[in-house]
């Protein structure tokens, strides 16, 4: 197994080296004519207004939150899903343990999803239910 992981390590290293090498070799090929106008960021041809580092729609944060829960679920269920086949193949009926367990897990998570869905948090542009909610 360590051999396999060394392959991963070497692949990642080689790819980083490829990027670095290409950029380094490009240094001898490409022009370098610095200019304050070129160093400006692009804002449709206008002079950039202020910094780009401001706060954005917090819904992205919510999506990441929901994702983490599902990510943890994926990480937990994949090993179980891997062995589920072997359990089902057993003749002593223990396969149903695997089936029921995964089903229960899914149902609970789906309940969570349904709650979020029902609260309307999955709608990107939430509909305003009353005029008082208007900003």
């Amino acid at each position: 197994m360590h051999f396999e992981y060394s392959v991963v390590l070497i692949y990642l290293t080689v790819s980083a080296v490829i990027v670095g090498l290409a950029l380094w070799l490009g240094r001898f090929l490409r022009p370098n004519l610095p200019d304050p106008q070129k160093a400006q960021i692009y804002e449709c041809g206008e002079r950039p207004i202020g910094s780009a580092w401001f706060n954005f729609n917090p819904r992205f944060y919510l999506i990441a939150l929901v994702f983490i829960v599902f990510d943890a679920e994926i990480a937990l269920t994949f090993p179980v899903a891997t062995v589920a086949r072997g359990w089902i193949a057993r003749s002593d009926g223990t396969g149903w343990v695997a089936v029921v367990e995964i089903l229960l897990f899914f149902v609970i998570l789906l309940a969570a999803l349904a709650y979020v869905w029902g609260k309307g948090e999955l709608d990107w542009s939430r509909e305003l239910t009353s005029p008082e909610e208007m900003p």
């Binding site: 829960v69 943890a72 609970i108 998570l109 969570a112 709650y115």
Partner: peptide
């Protein structure tokens, strides 16, 4: 514990949201 984790994840999601 496996099933408890799913309940925990449920609680986490509800609370966080």
């Amino acid at each position: 514990p496996f099933e408890a984790i799913s309940v925990l994840l449920l609680a986490v999601l509800l609370g966080a949201v």
